[in-house]
Amino acid sequence: MNAPAASGYNFAYLDEQTKRMIRRAILKAIAIPGYQVPFASREMPMPYGWGTGGVQVTASIIGEDDVLKVIDQGSDDTTNAVSIRKFFEKTTGVATTTATGEATIIQTRHRIPEAPLTEGQVLVYQVPIPEPLRFLEPRETETRTMHALEEYGLMHVKLYEDIARHGHIATSYDYPVMVAGRYLMDPSPTPKFDNPKMHRSAALQLFGAGREKRIYAIPPYTDVVSLDFEDHPFEVNRFDTPCALCGASGVYLDEVVLDDRGRRMFVCSDTDHCETRRADGHRGADGDATP
């Protein structure tokens, strides 16, 4: 495979041996859903926190025929998304898109697209902290043992604390899940609103943490269950109003401040979803505004 000659880089930036090493880690992660596989994370030409883990995963699986979509907080046109998309355009020359349905690989930070994913699609998450137990148990040796022995009571201590302090489980992102009934997993800082989308998704979900050097995965059609208490069951965030632009309800909304007099509106965080709906003629209360 060749990168566009102009770039001077190997296809998708990483050398082929590194990609193989990462693919082996990915295969292991798929074989053990939810288990954090260590891998030899490389220095990437962007700072930690900008998605180096996700970028390495994408670089290892992307081929010339793939169509790439990159989102950040659901949006295709924020800095992080634009930079990463350009990075892959430059180093692979593959086609890119903002349409969820057209993409074969979607790299994401903080969101899962609203449109249901399909078989053959791969969702690559950028993960800052892969260890869900670290909040209460800082020792890596101990958390690994806890995973090995399936000792997950501690995670409920955190949820207990939420209820004790706020009257309900206030954790609204990074909300811990059990994968395939075995491994406790941190779904990266996606809002818990998206947790149900992980459950039995038709797409392959891959998670890359560059600084922490961990890769984990949810194979298609895997059970993903959000932790909760019997008397405080898991609930997704609810929004009182539909999207001001496209009128969609049951989607994740962002608050947009319109001026310095306190006017604001709530719009789809998934920009592609919103645009597609508007193109189809849907309108919200503020449907003609431009956010």
């Binding site: 009571g153 409920h156 209820i163 909760d228």
Partner: peptide, 10 residues
């Protein structure tokens, strides 16, 4: 310890 034993009723 109760949660570690699987108690799930807050």
């Amino acid at each position: 310890r109760l949660m570690a034993l699987g108690q799930r009723h807050y």
